[in-house]
Design a protein around this nucleic acid. Structure first.
Length: 104
DNA sequence: CCGATGACGCGCC
DNA sequence: GGGCGCGCCATCG
């Protein structure tokens, strides 16, 4: 079980309509490698298999998607989340607190 | 082995 | 509130 394997596993644990943060993922793994988490997701080889789009920043904002920060990708990510019942105000999740899934 | 980088986070200005 | 810098850990060159 490598680092990214754990990250992916945690992503899969996030129920539909909920989101989480890089920090929480790191905490769940009992580590502070926030960046390593993001890196793992950026390399996400399990594209649709892993709901990496449910991972937002600590403030509930969209950051990247498919390994890039293009607003196009972010838009797709946003659409995806909205389809799951998560509303967005720009790149910020409006009901972030409500949809936030606390791991661990 | 060392240096640089990254889908981050947080404190400070 | 926006912008800047430093710190975090893991991976890559």
């Amino acid at each position: 079980m490598n680092f990214n394997e754990m990250v992916y596993d945690l992503c899969k644990k996030i129920p539909k309509g909920k989101v989480s943060t890089y920090g929480e993922i790191a905490k769940s793994m009992n580590t502070k490698a926030y960046r390593a988490v993001g890196r793992a997701l950026a390399c996400n080889p399990y594209a649709p298999k892993i709901p990496c789009h449910r991972i937002l920043s600590s403030k509930g904002e969209l950051h990247g998607f498919q390994g890039k920060k293009d607003k196009t990708a972010l838009k797709a990510k946003k659409e995806l989340l909205e389809k799951e019942g998560i509303q967005f105000n720009g790149d910020l999740a409006v009901n972030f607190k409500n949809v936030f899934y606390k791991l661990r």
